[in-house]
Design a protein around this nucleic acid. Structure first.
Length: 431
RNA sequence: GGGGAGAUACCGAAGCGGUCAAACGGGGCAGACUGUAAAUCUGUUGAGCAAUCUUCGUAGGUUCGAAUCCUGCUCUCCCCA
């Protein structure tokens, strides 16, 4: 029985804004047979961040279309360092860190695809497994011989570094990644590698290597997604606090939700196609509704909701929603006081906290700086008070405010706030 | 090797013996407006309640007094060879 994809992957990726370029024949291949395709992840940190969501979505769509996704974690490539997009040589990570990062990323990646059922269930591999026993001589004979230095030098990632310098290690990177593709091609029949557009050069080295090592009737394909941008030109995936991570220990579900909720109208319309699996007509309807009533920000809400649910699950989403409504709704001191200790803590999870002794009789200035460390000097505390930007338990306060027992929530917490978005919790211990 | 210019707060950039905690712009933070947006407007942006203290590459010196003058050192840039 002939293979029939569930849908045309290239068309799907194109309308979603996930398609940048591909090698000739890729679309035909995907329409013709069940294709095994892979994406590699670099273990530079012990958590993925939302920038990695793009290649993850590529794999998700690949699987949904009926093809077989392979997730590759770069235990070996991580030891080398990809020069793509880097202005300078990278710091090598030590083995233990790398190992830890690989494990953590594996756990995260396993959640996005179906590894259990069906002909096209996903597979997770680590390139360290096939590189750990390969010797240097073997590598330069079996791999290096097939690629000319001239070819390697022509890559953007290398060219950009010729002036400033590039180590032999990073120069070799493309061969290591290229060999991955060859290995997966021979072992698993993997014919497609996908990735961000910055990976094009590395991927094509792989397709070349396959052609040269296996013969011209052996074809391998490449498909890349565009670089995700933000309408205002700043870098996607960064917030004030740095990267937006998938690990909730690094970026709380609340902050994660907030990141998406705060994207601009223009970005929301693009991101909802890229980062959610909502259907085309539903998305078009949402965008149309949003254009009618942009102030409701239903597009951002839907986007934030969908992505947060996908990454953190329903329960954490609900907490994030609740936290958002308390923090940004017209909530008052009275409402705060109605929260149980448990709810209070979950709403404010991720908000900086400090424990302290009794605060009875202390002035607001002392508490803002010396006691809590929330603001960096007494002068700054006074200034903020003068700006009318400080609230205690959601009530604006002035410079003469003095704490007493009645300001404790649940008998032990004080919620400090500067402006709209900066919170701090003081946990008062019994004396 | 020769000649010149420079190093100022988060960044850029004025200041060139006292009135300089240091103009101005950007950025940050806050307030108003708003859609937890953008744009705009306003305030603020070393510490201290204050007296005052610490800050202008670095180490010394001159002076009643230095970011401002002198000397050594470090670094950066430009021109000539």
């Amino acid at each position: 029985m002939a293979f029939q994809p569930n849908y045309n992957l290239v068309e799907e990726l194109t309308w979603r804004g996930l398609f940048h370029q591909m090698t000739p024949g890729t679309e035909e291949l995907l329409q013709r047979e069940c294709v095994t395709g892979y994406v590699g992840f670099d273990p530079t940190a012990d958590s993925l961040h939302i920038g990695n969501l793009v290649p993850i979505m590529l794999l998700t769509h690949l699987q949904r279309a009926g093809h077989r996704p392979v997730v590759l974690v770069g235990g070996a490539t991580g030891m080398v360092g990809d020069p793509s997009g880097k202005k300078a040589e990278r710091q090598l990570l030590d083995g233990d860190t790398l190992d830890h990062n690989v494990r953590c990323q594996e756990a995260q990646l396993r959640r996005f695809l179906d590894f259990e059922y069906g002909e096209n269930r996903a597979l997770l591999v680590n390139n360290y497994d096939w590189f750990k026993n390969m010797g240097f001589l073997e590598f330069i004979r079996d791999v290096g011989k097939h690629v000319t230095v001239n070819y390697m030098l022509a890559k953007e990632s290398v060219k950009n570094r010729i002036e400033t310098g590039i180590s032999f290690t990073e120069f070799t990177y493309q061969l290591v990644q290229g060999y991955d593709f060859y290995h997966l091609y021979s072992e698993l029949g993997c014919k497609l590698q996908m990735g961000g557009s910055d990976q094009w050069g590395n991927i094509v080295t792989g397709t070349e290597l396959i052609r040269r090592k296996s013969g011209s009737d052996h074809e391998a394909y490449a498909l890349t997604a565009p670089l995700i941008t933000r309408a205002d030109g700043s870098k996607f995936g960064k917030s004030e606090g740095g990267n937006v991570w998938l690990d909730k220990k690094r970026t709380s579900p609340y902050k994660f939700y907030q990141y998406w909720l705060n994207v601009s109208d223009e970005d929301a319309a693009r991101y909802i196609r890229i980062f959610t699996l909502l259907g085309r007509s539903e998305i078009e309807e949402l965008i149309r509704a949003h254009e009618q009533e942009p102030h409701l920000r239903n597009l951002q809400k839907k986007l934030a909701e969908e992505v947060t649910r996908m990454i953190h699950g329903e329960e954490d989403l609900q907490t994030a929603l609740e936290a958002s409504s308390i923090l940004f709704g017209k909530s008052t001191s009275a409402e705060l006081r109605r929260l149980s200790e448990e709810d209070f803590l979950s709403v404010f999870e991720g908000v900086p906290q400090r424990e302290t002794g009794d605060v009875e009789g202390l002035s607001i200035v002392e508490v803002l700086h010396e006691v809590s460390g929330f603001l960096s000097s007494n002068g700054e505390a006074r200034r903020a008070l003068k700006e009318n930007s400080i609230s205690v338990n959601k009530d604006k306060v002035d410079e003469h405010f003095i704490f007493s027992g009645e300001h404790l929530l649940n008998g032990r917490y004080i919620l400090l706030q500067r402006g709209k978005k900066n919170y701090f919790i003081l946990k008062v211990n019994d004396k």
